[in-house]
Nucleic acid binder design. Structure first.
Lengths: 132, 132
DNA sequence: TAAAATACGACTGTATTAGTCCTGTTTTAT
DNA sequence: ATAAAACAGGACTAATACAGTCGTATTTTA
């Protein structure tokens, strides 16, 4: 199936919320409660976005997250590749797919690779701000 | 994850094989053996493509499949929607998704719907013959 | 009439996603 | 000081979808 993960959905919802909120710092709990997103799951996504320098965090009792970038400067592709476990639309395009069992007889690889490029280009063109 | 299913890969391989083979009728077994595709799985895919009027079948000891259309007349999107269980890139775009838990607070639906359109347009532009 | 092909529903195995649980670390209000 | 409330993160479980298998029926022809 070709479907985005919940993580990507949650990321978009969370980033949007932070960007339009007046508060300087937003707590994970506020977002998870408002949108019915499991707290622990969202917390991990936020941690990931911190590692990727989209958010910065403040620990402690008054802690939370703050945006490091403008949403208009974050390509959807970045979010996508940070959050999804794989970015290839077919299995044989993984980095370690030297063991394609179809191998010699497979002729669909190149055209599928082109399709993948087109798909990624869409993601690179869109900014997160387009989803707010 | 955003990935095409094996079924779509197998469909492309099979259609390509049939289209370039000299034989008037091609057996499932020939294709499954040549490309190491599980026979029963491929058989079901072929049955599906028959129902969708891409192939026609002949039963019996000398039976097999025959193309009903030119590959250049089959949009990849058709194959995609025949073979994949769902064509929506996010859950909340399913036909029966009236129970979106985010509901009122969700603002990312429209932009994602537009993304889906763009994605589908790529699939509609490509013909199966582009993958041979 | 036996063999070999399609036809097809039911079932099993496996991989990925989604979500939970538990324990730690940090910071601040009291 | 210390308790509370936030982030941090590894390990585990549950749910889902995909991939593949099995058994049986039907059809046709050598």
């Amino acid at each position: 199936m070709v479907k985005f993960s919940k993580k990507l959905e949650y990321s978009l919802i969370a980033l949007r919320h932070i960007s339009i909120s007046e508060d300087k710092i937003t707590r994970v709990r506020d977002i998870s409660e408002k949108y019915n997103i499991p707290h622990d799951l969202l917390a991990k996504i936020m941690q990931k976005l911190k590692k990727e320098c989209i958010l910065e965090s403040v620990q402690g009792i008054n802690g939370g997250y703050r945006l490091l970038k403008k949403l208009s400067e974050i390509p959807l592709f970045d979010l996508y590749s940070f959050v999804e476990s794989s970015t290839s639309i077919v299995e044989c395009m993984h980095d370690d797919a030297s063991d394609c069992y179809v191998s010699d007889n497979c002729t669909i690889k190149d055209p599928l690779a082109k399709m993948q490029d087109e798909f990624e280009n869409i993601l690179k063109t869109k900014m997160v701000s387009d989803f707010v």
